[in-house]
């Protein structure tokens, strides 16, 4: 009976065998992605807690957690901060800086390029706990490196500018990805086209707009999607500020952690997680739509 199925696909596997090959992946996806997501939905509908009576016997509370969230000044604050964080550190910071680095590295000697790329990559490769400690040491108000450099002893960067601190931190940390993606993309721009543009008298900005950008537009989109998604879910600022001072840098992942584990409100934390999941899906859908319209055009 497998024989009849063989003809339907190029690899000659047949439905059953092909199914066998993807089954492990599907099982993993189901167990670690779909099930937790469904479980989060369920938890979000309960008053489940880490300790106390509701830990032993959680009750269904319907949409109460979601109604609470919309009226919760700390949640709305957190949502707003997350938007600033994504816009500031991912969309503006990493994309612009990453592109600028990639653009400049095209024209330098390979040795310089190697050194710069290694340094930038290192920021990306080091574990989050390590880099956040380094940054904490740098921004520390007592004996902090930055205060020593700027001669501003006692200035508390993490208290005075918590959002700016974590935005700069994440830009520094994540630029490597954009840089690599853009340098690969820039190499794909045919030199002949740039040459012709130059012959036709196009200046730098014009070359960029009319020759380079059309080639890398897809990469810009992919890059923006990926980094905004993972910046949106990024927990490492917690290691720097713990969401403080007084919730001023409490982006959503930190907010969920503080509420679910800190205060023990697991049900409420799950509800917020679900809201995050939905926002993630919206970002992804938006991107896919953009990508499709682009493909249709070309």
């Amino acid at each position: 009976m497998p024989r009849t199925a063989v003809a339907t696909d190029a690899a000659g596997l047949g439905r059953a065998r092909a199914g066998g090959f993807v089954a492990p992946a599907l099982v993993l996806v189901g167990l670690f992605l779909v099930f937790p997501a469904l479980w989060t939905i369920y938890l979000g509908l309960t008053d489940y807690r880490l300790t106390g009576l509701a830990a032993a016997a959680p009750k269904m509370v319907g949409l109460q957690n979601f109604r609470d969230a919309l009226a919760d000044r700390f949640f709305l604050n957190s949502l707003w901060l997350t938007l600033i964080y994504v816009a500031g550190s991912a969309i503006i910071g990493q994309t612009v800086l990453g592109f600028a680095l990639a653009w400049m590295m095209q024209k330098v000697r390979p040795s310089v390029r190697g050194v710069v790329e290694t340094v930038v990559l290192l920021a990306w490769l080091l574990p989050g706990s390590v880099v956040s400690f380094l940054w904490w040491a740098m921004l520390n108000r007592r004996d902090g490196t930055l205060n020593a450099l700027l001669d501003t002893p006692g200035y508390n960067w993490l208290i005075q500018h918590p959002m700016l601190s974590i935005i700069v931190f994440n830009t520094w940390r994540g630029t490597a990805f954009s840089m690599m993606l853009f340098s690969a993309a820039l190499q794909a721009v045919p030199p002949s086209q740039l040459e012709s543009a130059r012959m036709a008298g196009a200046n730098g900005a014009q070359q960029f707009r009319d020759v380079v950008f059309p080639h890398i537009r897809g990469h810009v989109l992919t890059n923006t999607l990926l980094i905004s998604l993972w910046t949106f879910n990024d927990f490492s600022p917690y290691l720097l500020t713990a969401g403080g001072p007084n919730h001023k840098s409490e982006i959503l992942p930190a907010f969920i952690y503080n509420r679910a584990i800190g205060t023990g409100e697991l049900g409420y934390g799950a509800a917020i997680s679900l809201i995050m999941l939905v926002i993630n899906l919206i970002i992804a859908l938006l991107y896919l739509t953009l990508l499709r319209t682009r493909k249709v055009k070309t």
Partner: peptide, 25 residues
Amino acid sequence: GSDSGSGGGTSAGADTSAAAATSHT
């Protein structure tokens, strides 16, 4: 996975170990 006690597997749960293992929070 189910042994590790980080329950529901929400994104918050997954972050627990990272957070608790650091000191300077």
